[in-house]
């Protein structure tokens, strides 16, 4: 009996071993080629414009929107937040460096000391706490305004997530990747079901964007969030959107900045390496 068990076990091991895990570089290449072949007319950077890269009519509407972009006020608010000193006289520059245009491109990244993925939002609140200030809420409001400003300053730079050759970092990447491809919730849907299998198709009236370029423009100003907010502030972070897409499929959303979402962001942003940062964006 024991023999059979060990035999079975080793067979299982062999099976998982032969199902070799592809490297992040290989994943990235396949991911990009897939979308480029599927949408041959779309320039690489244009994938960062989501649905507007895929549909002429939506694009026209969006372009007229961009003439007076509703996120502009929030970029200004973010600049104010950046420039306003803390009670101790220091400011965000003491944590992030003097040049606000050099911040966004560093995130997300693997921190070898704490052995976890660090996000821009995580470091914003860390900075506040270290300076005796009250941390911001995670999903909207000031954290998104500051993010909008830092994104705006970084426009035109390219996403450059580094996955170091550290088994723990690879594990985090793999967890994020698995998250993107695993079906979940009562509706049994994976992120990839919608954003890999069916981009360019419509769910009800909404046009599905490609997984490629999905993070380049965050934080984002969404008309839907604007409508739901008493003060008309439609800005929100990437993790706010993750929670929305999880809830829609009737899975319990994870907390913003949970390990799950940070690792998802790590994978998800890495998949857009080389694309232009175009934050903040406007979406329906």
């Amino acid at each position: 009996m024991k023999k059979i068990l060990t035999l079975l076990l080793s067979a299982g091991l062999v099976a998982t071993a032969t199902q070799a895990v592809s490297s992040p570089e290989e994943d990235l290449e396949k991911f990009r080629i897939y979308y480029e072949q599927r949408f041959p007319g779309v320039q690489l950077d244009d994938f960062g414009n989501g649905p507007y890269a895929l549909d002429v009519n939506k694009r026209l509407q969006w372009e007229s929107m961009e003439e007076f972009p509703p996120y502009e006020d929030y970029v200004d608010k973010g600049r104010e937040i950046w420039e306003t000193p803390f009670k101790n006289g220091k400011s965000f520059a003491s944590c992030f460096g003097k040049d606000p245009s050099k911040v966004r491109v560093k995130y997300p990244h693997w921190d070898s000391k704490t052995q976890q993925v660090v996000t821009l939002e995580g470091d914003i609140n860390k900075c506040l706490k270290e300076n005796g200030e009250k941390p911001f809420g995670w999903k909207k409001g000031k954290i998104a305004h500051l993010g909008a400003f830092l994104g705006y300053e970084a426009r035109g730079q390219r996403i450059n997530v580094v996955i170091p050759d550290d088994p723990k970092a690879l594990e985090a990447y793999e967890e994020g990747k698995h998250f993107y491809y695993a079906k979940r919730g009562q509706l049994n849907l994976a992120c990839a079901d919608c954003h890999v299998q069916y981009p360019g198709h419509r769910v009800r009236g909404q046009l599905l964007s490609t997984g490629l370029g999905q993070t380049t423009h965050f934080p984002v100003f969404r008309a839907k969030w604007q409508k739901a907010a008493a003060n008309g502030d439609g800005m929100g972070t990437l993790h706010r959107r993750y929670g929305g897409c999880n809830g829609q499929v009737r899975a319990r959303p994870f907390k913003a900045q949970s390990r799950q979402y940070r690792n998802l962001e790590f994978f998800h942003t890495y998949m857009s390496n080389g694309l232009e940062i175009n934050a903040p964006g406007y979406r329906e």
Binding site: Q186, L187, N188, L189, D193, Q197, Y198
Partner: peptide, 11 residues
């Protein structure tokens, strides 16, 4: 791999 939700199986 169907994207169509299992309306009965998942009640």
């Amino acid at each position: 791999h169907s994207i169509m939700p299992p309306l009965g199986r998942h009640r």
